[in-house]
Design a protein around this nucleic acid. Structure first.
Lengths: 229, 229
DNA sequence: GTGTGTGAAGGGTTTCACAGCA
DNA sequence: TGCTGTGAAACCCTTCACACAC
């Protein structure tokens, strides 16, 4: 059985669900380390995230064998390994597109910087905003995105523009060399193969809650609906 | 074969994925109606959302037979039917918890109100904020959440508090009668059965992008990664 | 002919259960 | 004994392909 150590890029296709759970484990381990825990079991990681221990072990097993039988996982080691898998052992320069309500809030959102995602560029198409600052970054003309994205070698963009402007903005960003997009515009955007998008559509999420309340009992979301521990 | 018309609550369990797609169809239909289209095919709904026509038809088939063979769907009828399914034929009163960067941005986010989700209550635990307004709503003491949530008969809360405060805040909200939570705090919160949560964890999403870029080719997110049409 | 509605097939993810090792 | 690592089973979701209605 191919036992690849952490790096991963070959091997079986890893599901989106697994990747998102690894993110959770990563944060769980950060907390465990802060609390001076040296060892942690799949059982405990699972409990803290509302999952099963088998799920945790299976997720990790795609990337290697990080634990010790009978003992559990070394918190620091596993944290470092997951960091490598997810590409969090480095920092990423990020471009923010759209400096409205949501965009401005995201620019101030601490967790991004804490996990190594650094805004280096803020673009907006409203001339009134050009030259004004968010933090210590000046808002710049979106029309210049080609030059600026290339100059800063930015691969990740966070898009927070109105729905109608989103697809066009994304097309420009992709042409400028952006390879991954976190989209907060309330529309599903389409991109060419090789570019990754995550649509963070808050309207869809709240409508899913509406459905759950409307069709009581018929359906239960999977995430986080476990008894309080 | 049980042919339930739109309402739905019995019948087969509907997957989360299906519910989220229905939200997309709903918006697609709104656009089609605005563009004066009277009829639309599963093929077209699919194309506009980067999905397959079979997927669209299957999703709808769980709730009834809304189309006409050889013709397609009546846009207005299907829109109304999906609205009924998702519980969007009514308005929902919503409580915002946490009036920081993200919370304030969400309070201003138009799409929520446009789809019938109305903020009626804004709570924060910072005394400095009490009495100040966002729009025409005064920020109130989170400690009063029991009374206020009950008085306004609110079932949905949008939580945008710091990670460390999130689980405690949610426990209070659930005790006050909240049944559905849209959580923007960067932690997975756990709730008792019968309460629905959606964790909108932006850090997880951006880390999934980091993974995609790090392990090029090994994995491809499913959503929205289709060729531009 | 056209496009829906739907069983059945196919593919993927989670859970199970136990072998294996400290 | 305790807990990981992992094939196999179970489950769920998507895709296929075609009967059927217009």
């Amino acid at each position: 059985m191919p036992r690849h150590t952490s790096q991963s890029h070959d091997g079986p296709k890893i599901s989106d669900a697994t990747v998102k759970r690894l993110s959770k484990y990563y944060r769980t381990l950060q907390n465990a380390i802060s609390a001076e825990k040296t060892t942690i079991s799949s059982e405990e990681i699972a409990r803290l995230n509302g999952l099963t221990a088998a799920q945790v072990r299976k997720d990790l097993s795609f990337f290697g064998a990080f634990g010790r039988r009978g003992l559990g996982y070394n918190a620091v080691d596993l944290h470092r390994n997951i960091g490598q898998i997810l590409g969090l052992h480095r920092t990423w320069n990020v471009c923010l597109v759209g400096a409205g309500n949501i965009g401005t809030a995201l620019a101030h959102f601490r967790q991004f910087a804490e996990q190594g995602f650094l805004f280096k560029l803020i673009l907006d198409s409203d001339p009134a905003k050009w030259g004004t600052k968010i933090g210590d970054l000046e808002i710049q003309d979106f029309e210049r995105c080609d030059d600026l994205v290339k100059r800063e070698k930015i691969k990740i963009a966070v898009v927070a523009v109105p729905g109608l402007a989103a697809q066009k903005a994304v097309d420009r960003l992709v042409a400028a060399g952006i390879k991954a997009i976190l989209n907060f515009a309330p529309v599903t955007i389409l991109v060419p193969p090789g570019v990754y998008v995550r649509n963070e559509n808050m309207v869809i999420e709240i409508e899913a809650l509406s459905y759950a309340l409307t069709s009581k009992g018929g359906h239960r979301p999977r995430t986080g609906t476990l008894p309080v521990v």
